[in-house]
Design a protein around this nucleic acid. Structure first.
Lengths: 232, 232, 232, 232
DNA sequence: CATGAATGAGAATTCATTCAT
DNA sequence: AATGAATGAATTCTCATTCAT
């Protein structure tokens, strides 16, 4: 499902440990990729990435100005371009982080069983997803937006989604009897629901309690996947 | 997987489709709302609205330049500002249309029963939704992106999402026994899944056949709402 | 004092009677100068000129849009250009009116004597000036503004001032002994004071009663011209 | 009589003169007031302010395009907006300078006595006023035109005209016996005459020698304020 | 005579990116 | 490694004037 042309980013320093989200980001990709960052430099890089998330959150990717990011990061324009070759470049760095974490998360999804344990496992996983989502939602949103994709992010973006879905599809396929004809489509539907609901929850389009949200999502999904209803 | 295969399904809004849209426009919302339009004026207004949908589709709302819209509509800059005070203003006009249609559609959702008829009714309704969505998706997408941010859409008179959900919530509440604790949240989850899946389908992020998509969505939703699973 | 190149406007219909200010204006100068106006046309012409004064008053000449004038006059853009070849053209028409009235007024200034009668005559004349000024001040202001003069109004504008001052200078010269070395300069100073004070009064920069204003102006001027003060 | 002979008197503000002006500018008032300027920044700010005066002089405030200012200042559009948020903003900055200097000047007006010393003091002060006026006349003119209209100059902190007049009113009040009933009105008349005459002189609407002008103004004013004429 | 619609050159403004220190 | 300043292409918006009916 992933696109073969992944690897475009080869050459750039890859992340080693992505446990601590934004604060651990190391992906640089600045104009001089080879630059080795000292602790000072790493701090500045982190400041910029964190600031970008904040600004993307406030104004969205398009409306975010380099100026805003730089102001929030308490640094200068010049410095920005010391670390990133462009606004897009920074975005790509962020997206690489998110992608990695999302794929890792998708692999954490346990087999989903029909019983209470399966339900609970699903719910627990959703909670993790939501945690990730709420941290990175400005990036994820921008990424979902095709407008951004235009700028060669396809190679990266689609890959992320692909990788993420691979994990889910595997689990849906395991379900027996198959609840739907096409597990791939079902997995996509799951992703759609979870992603968008998370979005609604994050932006508080309607106030929702975390617990209620998780219960509802888990119930609908679990029922949806296992509910062999008698339709007569 | 790429965007190239697009067109498989409902396709992009054609002038034809958009025309219907435009014709339902209540008012142009020109700089000075008082302008009364004669037949020629109405034609131009329609041309602009149609062109905007086309351009929003091609480049997205943010990237769309007034210049593009004007070129597609085969008219001039000056004329644009004769009908709309800004790109945002045009967007609002379009959104008002969508909102109206979406609310109308939500009211068409029949009671959902546990039997085959309920399933079929749900599926039929989803098909209608998708038709509407594929016509207006550039607008809906931009709106979703916008909702909280920037634009003052308040003045729209219609709380689009709210109006849309009211209809759904009513149906979810009718279900007995209640599948979930909070019908409102469930309705929101439905909307989330349907909206985002439609988006994935429209942009062809992954190739999906219309029938498969409707089957899958309808199944998951129907099961989700009625499937009283034995979780032990 | 007037510029020889006056007469540039020759060929345009000149006014016959300018007694009733704006409402009597007949100067057309439209694209087709020869057009003979029926009563309908005269009414429209008048509406436009009156509207222009109103709009110039509200927004000033530069900020005044043809659109504003046309709206106030309750007519259309097309009609505007039926009567005037441009915004400047309309302005010139207005200015011709003002100029004529101002010259006529300057000729009405009686000889100024040292006694009470001279003072009263001066005061009465100032009152007339103020009446004229307050009617036409938007036009006079714009005219005083060199920015406008740029557009070939010089021939007209300077002439007006010149004609106006000729009358005053005559009276200042009659004063014996001469209060100042240069009567021309003194006349210009008078004009300056009266014009600008009228402006302040009209725009109510500071609230001033008409009577107080006339008393003050007349006193300062009368004293200024006759006061042989003992400066030791 | 035309503008061509301009330069006879004080002349147009030279870079030199304008420099003085700029250097008294309290703050640039850039888009984000918080910008702290280093020496280079200050130089550019000054260049822009100087250029603006030059251009306002040549074309007037309304006709002046940012483009012109930028060209004269030998800098770029972008830079302009680095220092000012708009043409109006620049104007306000300039006006603040003028206002400050005008108030300062008004405080320099000495008590006016009936004797020769009083006359000379008045004349000397008028000369200072004219120097200030000829330096800033493009700004003052635009301001007079603007005062009531459009621009929100309120925020200026200084009620320029008001501040200026306060000084004059004080002196007029000291005169005994009072030459006129209302000293405030008399002061306003003084201002009117002096301001407008200066304008006429600066634009050389009629050629006037500086000395003659000062003699005339001083004489009329002095007589006007002290001349107890026997009007019978 | 009158009108609503259309036009497009011109002006203002923004902001990603580069430069000089 | 960092910074403030500068740049200018790209874009939005305005409005006097012309056009078609």
């Amino acid at each position: 499902m992933g696109k073969a042309e992944a690897g475009k980013m080869a050459g750039k320093p890859t992340k080693q440990a992505a446990k601590t989200a934004a604060s651990s980001t190391t992906a640089g990709g600045g104009p001089a990729q080879e630059r080795t960052l000292r602790s000072q430099g790493k701090k500045t890089l982190r400041k910029l990435l964190d600031a970008a998330i904040v600004v993307f959150d406030e104004r969205g990717y398009h409306a975010a100005r380099v100026d805003d990011i730089v102001r929030v990061a308490k640094t200068s324009h010049g410095t920005f371009y010391l670390y990133f070759s462009s606004k897009d470049d920074l975005f790509r760095a962020l997206l690489a982080d998110v992608g990695e974490e999302m794929v890792a998360l998708s692999e954490l999804l346990p087999p989903i069983t029909r019983d209470r344990a399966g339900y609970e496992a699903l719910r627990a996983w959703l909670q993790q997803f939501y945690a990730l989502y709420s941290r990175y939602h400005p990036v994820i949103r921008a990424w979902m937006d095709t407008e951004v994709n235009s700028l060669d992010l396809e190679g990266l973006g689609v890959d992320v989604l692909g990788g993420f879905m691979t994990g889910l599809i595997k689990r849906v396929r395991e379900i027996d009897p198959p609840p739907v004809d096409d597990p791939d489509t079902a997995a996509l539907a799951m992703v759609a629901m979870v992603e968008r609901f998370s979005y609604f929850a994050v932006i508080q389009i309607i106030p929702v309690e975390l617990d209620v949200m998780l219960d509802t999502l888990a119930t609908i999904l679990h029922n949806g996947l296992f509910g062999g209803i008698d339709r007569r």
